[in-house]
Simulated assay, not measured.
Amino acid sequence: MSVKPSTALSRKAAFPPTKKVLIIGGCGRIGNSVAQDIANHTDAEVTITSRNPQQVNSPFQFLALDLADREQLEKAIASKDLVVHCAGPFHHRDGRVLKTCIEAGIDYIDVSDHRSFYERVIKYNDRAIASGVTAILNTGIFPGISNSMVKQGIEQFDRPQKIHLSYVVEGSGGAGLTVMRTTFLGLKNKFSAWINGKWQNTLPYTEREMIEFPQPYGKTGVYWFDMPETYTFADSFAVDTVITKFGSIPDWYNHLTWITAHIFPEAWVSSPQGIEFFARVSYLMTKVTDKFSGIGVAIRAEITGEKEGKPQTYCATMVHDNTAIAAGAGTGAIAELILEGKLKQPGIYPVEQALSTQLFTEIINSRQIKITVSY
């Protein structure tokens, strides 16, 4: 005699449990954009966190969270399917969120944007593999979408030789104080760049170069800037040179940033108080100029090398009228793939090592982000 399953059991089988996502720093501009993208493209239950509940005005579930409280962090992460870390700047983050996720067996992605964080947490790679945890770093717009644009180009060559990656942002880019702090944190210290097959010390905001971006940007000045791609691309791809340069619109922001990097006393820019001062002043300035400049972003990825024994140049460009929304799309897309089970690769990876070009193309098209390619 067969037994008919109960209605409750049938309904449970038909409708699997809702996935749960925790976005740490989800009340900031980038974190909120990530939350919106995940909500728009998945059925996941999204919870956002902040240290300051008084600042919360969001349609998402909210949880007050101080990352310094280990017990509170463990409790927040428990029962989640995915944790998205958006609480920068990442220059001084110690990796405790990722470590906690690995211990709990929960997948993790972040919007980290400095090589020091990658170097700090890659030591947990074996633990992540053993725990079956997929951890993808450097998602967003740059790094993030830019990484996959380069990977797509690299795959067109028999022997890729040089990556030249440039970014330009209008005003604040629609981002908040955290992004401003990140910019000034990266101005004073030399960094290693992979040039002609060896690591060479490079000064940020030097070697201004005029790059032709798509309209409405046109020719714009960009400068050396320490990005995680400068470091991870040398490991991900067999190339001789990796160049990463950044610039702002209007151009006088570039000149002000150059002065800050090279004229002001180092103590002014290196101290926490100095960083906070410059970040807040810049943020107030961009609140005014954003109305005229816009808050968009452009990326230009040029790869040179050999194809069938002949020199070849590949160039991919992308523009978006809101940098924060583009960053949210880049991270939200990775979250969507993990939640759907399409991206499962235990270990810790920069985005270009984890995301295939096929999946990248699918998710970018689903978000109406256009990438233009020329040879």
Rank of each mutant, 00 (worst) to 15 (best):
G274Q: 14
L165A: 08
V111M: 05
A14N: 15
S148G: 05
P311N: 04
Y217K: 03
L63N: 14
I325H: 04
Y375N: 14
S166Q: 07
K4S: 13
A316V: 03
A87C: 03
S366N: 08
K12Y: 09
K4D: 04
T317G: 01
S79N: 14
T100V: 13
V269E: 01
D321S: 02
E71P: 14
N57E: 09
F157W: 12
H85F: 10
L98A: 04
N125Q: 13
C315N: 04
Q152H: 15
G305I: 03
P346M: 02
Q152C: 15
E170N: 12
I275N: 05
F157L: 15
F184Q: 01
F117Y: 09
S293A: 11
S79H: 13
D235P: 15
K99T: 02
K4Q: 11
R11K: 15
R181T: 15
A78M: 06
T18C: 07
S58M: 01
G296L: 00
F117N: 04
T178M: 09
G294H: 06
V111Q: 04
T289H: 06
S356Q: 13
M318R: 00
A104R: 08
A279Q: 04
K12Q: 11
L359V: 10
G197N: 13
N189G: 10
A261E: 03
P265V: 11
I369T: 02
L177Q: 08
R208N: 06
D126G: 11
K342Y: 11
V319P: 01
T18Q: 13
P346R: 03
D290G: 04
N147W: 13
K344M: 06
T100R: 09
Y205W: 10
A301T: 14
V239Q: 05
E71M: 12
I334Y: 01
I23P: 13
T100N: 10
